[in-house]
Amino acid sequence: METYAIEYLAAGRPKMLTYAEGKEMETGIVKKRAERLYAAENGCRHDDVADKKNHGGKDRAICIYPHDHYPKWEEEFSVTLDRAAFGENITAMGMTEENVCIGDTYRVGEAVIQVTQGRIPCDTINKRTGLNGLLARIIETGYAGFLCRVLQKGEIRQTDKIQLVERDPHEVSVAFALHTYFHHPKDQEAMQTILAVDALAQRWRDKLQARLARLTV
């Protein structure tokens, strides 16, 4: 079974972010280092989102971003990114969109989590990092990270390993799902493949079903 290391844990409540010549917005994307997280059904303790329509909830309780992508973005944009620059709770080593599937279940510390969807990023990432082209490149590459629900609550420490407990039988990778979502919005077969995964987040299920309905009218 695959096992991954945690590079960084982070949490933070919404606060004002200043960007682009003094503009401000409230967001939970700016997170601080946490020696430990307590993962619960609705998210991590001491962590929250500002836009509850598009972020958070039981299907999106924990955000994971692969540490593997940081060197790419830093080289491409000639910057040094902050830790948890993408607003993730867990920055994981080697745990990429290509080798993680929707519905996969992992034990991390005392908690058990399940991958529910690829992350759909918004321009808050550009505002957080000050890199205007980053969002477009994330969508182009699919290096967006992924979200999880909490099946068993418990404490997570940075020294804990993320251990695969069960691979979803459909083996639909996060990369495949994101590539379909971003770049092939009319691929009915691909969307049906994603919808077959029982663990898929309800928000994604609704969006894909709506797309299929429009295509079959």
Rank of each mutant, 00 (worst) to 15 (best):
D187C: 05
I194R: 04
E74I: 08
M1I: 09
V197G: 02
G87M: 05
L17N: 08
N42I: 07
L178S: 08
E2S: 13
V100K: 00
Y181D: 01
V174E: 00
N126W: 07
A10M: 10
D59L: 04
A175R: 15
A34Y: 06
T116A: 06
K207F: 02
F146K: 03
W204R: 00
G118E: 02
T105D: 14
I138P: 04
C148V: 00
E140C: 07
L9K: 11
V49T: 05
T216S: 11
A144M: 09
R137M: 12
R107C: 06
I6F: 11
S78E: 14
V197L: 03
Q158C: 12
Y70F: 12
A39Q: 05
D104Q: 05
E140I: 05
T193P: 01
D59C: 03
E75C: 04
M16T: 15
A196P: 13
L208Q: 02
Q192N: 12
H184M: 12
V150N: 03
A39H: 05
H55D: 01
E76F: 13
A213Y: 07
E75W: 11
Q209C: 08
Y38P: 07
G43A: 08
K186G: 12
R60G: 03
R203V: 08
K15C: 12
D47M: 03
H46I: 04
E76R: 15
E26L: 07
G22L: 09
Y70I: 08
I6M: 06
Q158K: 09
G57R: 08
A5C: 12
A201L: 00
D59F: 07
T159V: 09
K186R: 15
V79T: 04
M95G: 10
E35F: 05
R45V: 15
A50C: 04
Y143I: 01
D104I: 02
C148W: 00
T180V: 06
R205G: 00
T18W: 11
N126H: 11
V165L: 15
D206V: 04
A85W: 05
R60I: 02
K15W: 10
R203Y: 04
I120D: 12
A40P: 10
E24K: 15
T91R: 09
M95A: 06
C63V: 10
V165T: 07
E98L: 06
D82M: 15
V197D: 03
T96F: 09
G142M: 02
K52N: 01
E166P: 06
V217Y: 06
H67G: 08
L195G: 06
E24S: 14
M191A: 03
T3A: 13
C63W: 03
A201R: 00
D160L: 02
M16R: 13
C63S: 13
T105A: 15
A34Q: 13
E189D: 09
I156K: 08
